[in-house]
Write a protein that binds this DNA or RNA. Structure first.
Length: 430
RNA sequence: GUGGGCGUAGCUCAACUGGCAGAGCACCGGACUGUGGCUCCGGACGUUGUGGGUUCGAUUCCCAUCGCCCACCCCA
């Protein structure tokens, strides 16, 4: 026997009834985003590697060590092999499409959402997979379209709160921060380095490394012993210039007006290079170490970094795997049951059953077919296990008389119904 | 990439200091040839993740390897 082929590390099959939950989440997202006038965009899973190097950032772990990337073989021999990558996130692709299709020519701001798989070559753990799914949305447009307005930030945050609420997910926390504009961050980074210099040798090994490579990351450190030191480090809020400060204030003012609860987390920094000003994260307990179910922020300079026109934007990505996990606590998955199970009996009855099934489905009824080889007992047993509401018995007697036996599997009550009345009878009892 | 935990039937798990691999649930069939759920009877379930070692004998002990899980780094 050949060796079994299994799903590759970090990927997984989603089976029923779990897929019902996934569909529920996606339907809720589409519905909710639609109410905010967002429209769907689908970008390729495969992109030019350079797209992510330029947007997410060459030095980020995502790009430097967690991407599935390879040189395209078909052109390798001409020594101009194109480097391809499976997308590790979707914002870069959306902005690329925005530029490529000159979407700035369209009226107003572009409000786009996507649902799809992303890929990162990380070690899997709870809530983290190599193929994972994100539901995200972006608002992007030329400055004149209002894309830079704090009202857009608030709109996105309100939309997320609405979605979580609609899904019945509670106990989420919105953590909000502003990382300022690039100039602010340069000044803040310097201030951090200065403040860390005298104390960094008292900190954990990771922090000593971060202090050199990415001082902002020191703020995320979870080592208890480091906390007193971190508390005393300068805060980004003291380094924001006036426009950034004003922007952040206005976002909060609108959130308050909308009664969207949030907390300021001055240590919240996000991993992607392109974020400016508003950054945020929604967290949820009981998800293990990966407690962030979604994150996002503003990326006013991204379009230009990718060779496009100035097009400020803000967006987020929901970790769908994690959202589903959180939702599963509220609503356990359940397989939908058929309305009717057709118990065909006797040679030649499969065709009759198929015809009847076709008629019923035409009326919007969900039908499962038995098989003419089954004994009635077995058909009823199966119908019952599947959770069907009705068993429709189709045998010689029924064909002869034109009266079809319909059994309500919950009550055990059975009656003969004229074939023409069958769909109506079943629908009214659904 | 690093650290820890765990791999026994489809699922949840047993099996004493090393002595014939088991139970519950689920599945299939029968009791009941056109009437499910309850009950009873029966059946199939497995190279104990894989490979090696120690031993008269290994699910058990040792080594290696693969896989999964959890955590770190990083991140959604």
């Amino acid at each position: 026997m050949p060796a079994l082929i299994k799903a590759v590390r970090g990927t997984r099959d989603l089976l029923p009834p779990d897929t019902e939950t996934w569909n529920l989440v996606e339907a809720a997202a589409r519905d909710c985003f639609g109410a905010f006038n967002f429209h769907e965009i689908r970008t390729p899973v495969l992109e030019d590697l350079a797209l992510f190097q330029r947007s997410v950032g060459e030095e980020t772990d995502i790009v430097s060590k967690e991407m599935f990337a390879w040189e395209d073989r078909s052109r390798a021999e001409s020594e101009k092999g194109q480097w391809l990558a499976l997308r590790p996130e979707n914002t870069a692709g959306v902005v690329r499409a925005y530029i490529e299709h000159k979407l700035w020519e369209r009226a107003g701001v572009q409000k786009l959402y996507y649902i799809g798989p992303q890929f990162r070559r990380e070690r899997p753990q709870k809530g983290r997979y190599r193929q994972f799914y994100q539901i995200g949305a972006e608002i992007i447009g030329p400055p004149a379209s209002g894309s830079e307005s704090p009202a857009r930030d608030a709109e996105v945050l309100e939309m997320l709160a609405t979605l979580l609420e609609r899904l019945g997910i509670q106990n989420w926390t919105l953590e909000l921060n502003s990382v300022g504009c690039p100039e602010d961050r340069v000044r803040y980074n310097q201030a951090l380095r200065d403040a860390l210099a005298p104390v960094v040798n008292q900190m954990c090994g990771d922090c000593q490394r971060r202090a050199v490579t990415n001082p902002l990351r020191v703020l995320d450190c979870k080592v208890p012993a480091d906390q007193p030191i971190i508390e005393k480090l300068p805060r980004i809020s003291d380094y924001l210039d006036e426009p950034c400060r004003e922007h952040f204030y206005e976002v909060q003012r609108i959130l308050k007006a909308l009664a969207v609860p949030y907390t300021i987390n001055s240590r919240l920094v996000r991993g992607l290079d392109y974020y400016v000003r508003t950054v945020f994260e929604f967290t949820h307990g009981a998800l293990g170490a990966q407690n962030a179910i979604l994150g996002g922020g503003r990326y006013d300079g991204l379009s230009e970094a990718l060779g496009g026109p100035r097009a400020p934007g803000i967006g987020f990505a929901i970790g769908e795997d994690r959202l589903v996990m959180a939702l599963a606590e509220v609503r356990p998955a359940e397989t939908a049951a058929p309305d009717v199970y057709i118990a065909a009996m006797g040679a030649g009855m499969n065709a009759e059953a198929a015809r009847l099934g076709r008629e019923l489905r035409h009326s919007g009824i969900t039908v499962e077919l038995g098989d003419e080889s089954f004994r009635l007992k077995k058909s009823l047993e199966t119908a019952s296990k599947l959770g069907a509401r009705f068993a429709v018995i189709l045998g010689e007697n029924e064909i002869q008389s034109g009266q079809i036996a319909v059994k309500n599997l919950a009550t055990g009550e059975q009656q003969a119904v004229a074939r023409a009345e069958l769909p109506g009878r079943i629908r009214q009892n659904r």
